[in-house]
């Protein structure tokens, strides 16, 4: 897999500590929703740093979008969020990862569970579904449960609310460090009751995609299996924030 120099065509704020980079990648071979790319930064003296970032844009999109959470003591994410600007080049290679992927033609109900920046590959899945024709969409009902610490950590909030209104997606949020009224969502860590409310019954044979920090993924995947979901239909991608 070859390294390619992409060009940055747009940088936008996505949350308090996250930016979305829009890239033009020459000869991009296409990707599936859920895959990621490797990014490489090389300094003048030859020093290099590499990280993986999930792709936020759907397969249908001509440009590649990455959403990067800024880790203060990190090495790559502060560069991508603070230094990189429109017109710069950025070395990428991909797409990578062929397991944690979803295609609308798979049909059947889907539960997406995100913790923090784990929303990114799931957003690619929601965007992919939104681009499909209405018949395929009707066959793949989608429900999202999205946990962040605070409101300011939520990525793509307006876009998700638009998908709820226009695309018959269900979405629930839980803000684990906010207090206050529950009308707009939960205020606790994801638990069995929440997964029962937001998810699909095991008898509907949903596919579940769980992405986020390890403790959340471990706990959600275990709870889904306890609720009776087939372990082979629970797909996970675990990561802590990478600098």
């Amino acid at each position: 897999m070859k390294w390619t120099v992409a060009s940055v065509v747009e940088v936008r704020d996505e949350a308090l500590h996250a930016k979305t980079l829009v890239l033009d990648v020459p000869d991009w071979p296409g990707h599936r929703a859920g895959q990621h790319v490797d990014v490489r930064l090389v300094a003048e003296d030859g020093y290099q740093a590499q990280r993986s970032y999930s792709i936020a844009s759907p397969p249908e999109s001509r440009q590649l979008e990455l959403t990067v959470e800024r880790i203060d003591d990190g090495e790559v994410s502060p560069y991508l969020c603070d230094v990189l600007h429109v017109g710069d080049g950025l070395e990428v290679r991909g797409p990578i990862g062929g397991y944690f992927v979803w295609d609308v033609r798979d049909a059947g109900p889907v539960l997406l569970v995100a913790g923090g920046s784990g929303i990114v590959p799931l957003m690619a899945m929601m965007r992919h579904r939104a681009r499909a024709d209405a018949n395929l969409r009707a066959l793949s009902e989608m429900s999202l449960l999205y946990s962040t610490r605070t409101l300011g950590d939520l990525f793509y909030l307006q876009e998700i609310e638009r998908l709820v209104e226009e695309q018959n997606v269900r979405a629930a949020f839980t803000l684990t460090r906010e207090k206050g009224d529950d009308r707009r969502g939960y205020h606790r860590r994801i638990d069995k009751a929440m997964l029962t409310d937001v998810g699909w019954p095991p008898s509907h044979m949903p596919r579940s995609y769980v992405c986020g920090p390890t403790p959340l993924v471990e706990s959600v995947a275990r709870t889904l299996v306890e609720l009776g979901h087939d372990p082979s239909r629970v797909l996970t991608e675990r990561f802590g924030p990478t600098g």
Partner: peptide, 11 residues
């Protein structure tokens, strides 16, 4: 030949 990332410095 590697592509040099503008403004990226070795740590």
């Amino acid at each position: 030949e590697p592509f040099i990332a503008r403004g990226f410095h070795s740590r």
